[in-house]
């Protein structure tokens, strides 16, 4: 039950993007299409789960004052693994996401979870925390990308959504991401305040 709690926390109660509000850079940049958002989620989740597990496994031998360089080394290694793998087997994805794959290293969700959760908990909980947080990223990115791709490019999964509709350019630019994010946060808070009553 504890593990289930970790997953729902990641998706809803403590959603890294929508509730904690971290990791905004890739969130705003890659949510122009659903396929970009999904691949970003996969890459970030893989790194998050692996780094959480490893950080948790080595937490007892890592002296406190050098923990950050060690965490970053671990995270960067997994990011490079993801980058090389994408380059070799999914070159189209690698081209579409470009710089945002290597930038996962500095995504605060991943270092944040290592600091806040993995170094204080056991390996299995950390893996579940990673999965939950990863699904949270996916939920947020998917939702953003769904609206932005339809409104900004009149497309869904790369195919025309409504033939003949003129897409609004601002939605695929950065301001569109902020507008969409604001509406999603609004909707989330409405649902939350209703469920509290």
């Amino acid at each position: 039950m504890k593990y289930w709690q970790l997953i729902t926390d990641g998706i809803w109660h403590r959603n890294p993007t929508l509730v904690i509000g971290i990791g905004m850079c890739p969130t705003l940049a890659v949510t122009t299409s659903i396929s970009n958002a999904l691949w970003m989620t996969l890459a970030a989740t893989f790194v998050l789960v692996c780094s959480n597990a490893l950080v948790s496994a080595v937490k007892n031998i890592v002296p406190d004052h050098i923990r950050i360089p060690i965490f970053i080394t671990i995270i960067a290694s997994f990011v490079i693994i993801v980058e090389l793998t994408l380059k070799a087997f999914q070159p189209e994805v690698d081209k579409a996401l470009g710089i945002f794959i290597p930038l996962i290293v500095v995504n605060c969700i991943i270092l944040g979870r290592a600091e806040e959760f993995a170094q204080k908990n056991d390996v299995i909980s950390s893996v579940f925390d990673g999965i939950g947080m990863g699904m949270g990223i996916g939920f947020a990115l998917g939702l953003l990308a769904f609206f932005r791709e339809i409104l900004g490019a009149n497309k869904l999964m790369g195919y025309t959504f409504i033939p003949g509709m003129e897409p609004s350019l601002v939605m695929i630019m950065a301001p569109g991401a902020f507008f969409t994010l604001a509406f999603i946060l609004w909707g989330m808070n409405v649902i939350k305040s209703k469920s509290k009553k």
Binding site: V30, T32, S33, A96, L97, G98, I172
Partner: peptide, 9 residues
């Protein structure tokens, strides 16, 4: 190219 995903890319 390394242009912005969704725009230049």
């Amino acid at each position: 190219q390394a242009e912005t995903p969704g725009l230049g890319a």
